[in-house]
């Protein structure tokens, strides 16, 4: 029996450059334009009390069947990349070598949804293969600009911590530990928090331990159970048992449960 290797190219963990942009102009002195961020439609943020920014990994904590989410606006982000076609497919396909590069425009739409009495939720679907961190940095800057009057709560993950960490001034939950060296945070969570810190916008954050590349992390059962306890009051749902059951179901459907799919973690 012949087993076909499905992918010759493996992205090393220390590889930082987004593989979407393959320009070789190392000695260019040109200034690069920033991604453009705009609101899909105007929204009066003063009608709301709180904005929860959550990564895809933790989105199951706000299950759609229990938490009625209604789209009220959205962030639209546009940016350009240049793709070298001959490198685009790497060794996956024996495609023809195509000389030259191709300019591509990318658009990302992130809906802002309202739920409960006074809360907004912004879910961020991170994908390090397609979206450069500059997009999240600029989005963080715009959030700090537009939403500084709201209570901001960031729910993120990190593979450099061992337990759930509570950040903010004051911290989201004083009973939880905060970061201690050498722990640190990266990915979209750090992008947003950095802009909030630099622009002196008050925030609170919960960071959960996870494993895997940014946007494709997996969570342990114990972490998920702890998060369910912490986030139940935020969800503004009534029956805790129903909430926990819905969270577990969506966590597994979301593909972020450790051991559910990979076969490596059992």
């Amino acid at each position: 029996m012949l087993f076909k290797q499905w992918n010759n190219f493996t992205e090393p963990r220390h590889h930082l450059d987004a593989p979407i942009d393959e320009r070789d102009e190392l000695d260019s002195l040109k200034i690069e334009p920033f991604p453009q961020v705009s609101l899909a439609k105007s929204i009066d943020f003063s009608d709301f009390k709180r904005l929860i920014i959550v990564g895809k990994t933790l989105e199951p904590l706000f299950p759609r069947n229990l938490v009625a989410r209604r789209e009220v606006s959205g962030f639209k982000i546009t940016w350009h990349t240049e793709i070298n076609e001959s490198q685009k497919f790497r060794e996956d396909f024996q495609s023809e070598e195509i000389a030259g590069s191709m300019r591509a425009e990318h658009t990302l739409e992130l809906p802002i949804e309202s739920f409960g009495q006074d809360s907004l939720i912004l879910c961020i679907h991170e994908n390090f293969l397609r979206v450069s961190p500059i997009v999240w940095n600029i989005l963080g800057f715009e959030i700090a600009k537009y939403c500084s009057g709201l209570e901001l709560l960031v729910l993120g993950t990190a593979d450099t911590i061992q337990e759930i960490k509570s950040l903010g001034l004051p911290a989201y939950d004083a009973n939880l530990p905060t970061l201690i060296p050498p722990e640190f945070i990266t990915s979209f969570t750090a992008s947003i928090l950095t802009q909030l810190i630099v622009l002196k916008v008050p925030f609170q954050a919960l960071i959960a331990p996870s494993e895997g590349p940014s946007g494709f992390e997996k969570l342990r059962l114990t972490t998920m159970d702890q998060l369910i306890d912490l986030c139940w009051p935020l969800s503004q749902t009534h029956a805790r048992d129903d909430y926990a059951k819905a969270c577990h179901r969506h966590w597994k459907l979301n593909g972020t449960a450790m051991g559910a799919q990979a076969g490596l973690y059992v």
Partner: peptide, 13 residues
Amino acid sequence: ELTSLHLYPFVGP
């Protein structure tokens, strides 16, 4: 703190 827009995101204690 200086503007970190152009850098890979990082937050630490």
